[in-house]
Design a protein around this nucleic acid. Structure first.
Lengths: 209, 209
DNA sequence: CGAGGAATTCATCTAGCGTTGATTTCAACG
DNA sequence: CGTTGAAATCAACGCTAGATGAATTCCTCG
């Protein structure tokens, strides 16, 4: 009964580690997730994790940052223009979060973003530059209003995701996707195309007077 | 130069510890916050923290769960009825979060809720039973629709707070309170009094058909 | 078949955590 | 004053974490 050394066959151990890490990170957040726990879940020695990924942070980035490429999905939902954008956005968003691979990864990222400066910065830059700014450009929103509209959209998105997938408050947590889309979509729509208060510094000063 | 033993005068060390704990918990979340760090920030030996509070969890609860009593503020914002409720809610919410004591405490609670089951359960029950349900009752919302409306409201609230105070995405992060109120208030208003899709199971099934 | 390298484990190091018990200093009270 | 108890520190324990380096097994290719 050989306990040490290489295994027989060609088991995709690396993928097993990634998958285990995704689950444990999603469940416990960054520091909450122990490499030992990940290794155990993958049926593997903890040292092997370091052998493949070097450090815990690199493992996290490999697992979590990978499945996000807004470059493809963004044009698809902004393409048809500003009409019905709210519903399309929520639908696409929920598609990511219901996905068994990208959902947990996203949850892990959100969890750790609320704890680590480096992670929060990462998520903020990702959202701000790669998603929100580009989305507003594709929709041809007035650049003076775009940042405010974008951060309002972000607030509803983060909240929806937090309530439905992290805090799991009912009934939002187990509502069918299309019902969520129908209820939250209009909010997004209003943030994107509706009236704004304080579109820039001057307008804000005026509104406060 | 005496290093050990009781200090001269009557310094309010306990309060110093509470205050330091609030800051560190808010910044790093529950496990991220080291008792040693809290003690250092309070200019005190780590053992003294245990002397006063016994355990880390008790310290957390003492620091974080204390400043929340919706019993007083809730009737005040639901009192004038359903008109303008959205703006009043956001205004009251931001008042809590801008407060130098309750703000960090709330942030600490939110941060740790995204990591610990016990903490998430705590926050969920607090929000669900003590805030949302009672608020809906005071507003005399149709009980069949109340839970869905409440969780939609919660989603916008959590998102706003997350973006503004945790993720700090601009411009929402540094917008004056009244501008936020004017922009987000209507969303709350719509969730409370606006049209709903799928108010109950039957309606949901119909909407999906 | 033999050598080299990749895969895997083992034992161990170091650092930090929460917690504890003994010990010292100070304030209050008779 | 002398005593008592609270306030505060010190030193240490036990635990768990991430990381490391050597050792072992297996696959691959010449």
């Amino acid at each position: 009964m050989a306990r040490t050394g290489r295994r027989r066959g060609s088991p995709d151990t690396r993928e097993a580690i990634v998958s285990a890490a995704r689950a444990v990170f999603a469940e416990h957040g960054y520091d909450g997730a122990a490499i030992r726990a990940i290794a155990a879940r993958a049926g593997v020695d903890p040292a092997l994790v370091h052998h493949y990924f070097g450090t815990k942070e690199k493992l996290f980035l490999a697992v979590v940052a990978a499945p996000f490429d807004p470059g493809e999905v963004l044009p698809r939902i902004t393409g048809p223009g500003t009409d019905g954008f709210g519903e399309r956005l929520i639908r696409a968003l929920l598609a990511v979060w219901e996905d068994p691979v990208r959902g947990p990864a996203a949850l892990a990222l959100l969890r750790s973003a609320l704890r680590h400066d480096w992670s929060a910065r990462m998520l903020r830059e990702f959202l701000t530059n790669r998603v929100l700014r580009r989305g507003m450009q594709l929709l041809e929103i007035d650049p003076a209003e775009a940042p405010l509209r974008a951060s309002l959209v972000a607030s509803q998105i983060v909240g929806l995701v937090g309530i439905r997938y992290a805090l799991r408050i009912e009934p939002l947590a187990s509502l069918p996707v299309e019902v969520v889309v129908a209820n939250v979509g209009p909010t997004i729509q209003r943030y994107v195309t509706g009236p704004l208060v304080g579109r820039d510094a001057v307008a804000i000063a005026e509104h406060l007077r």
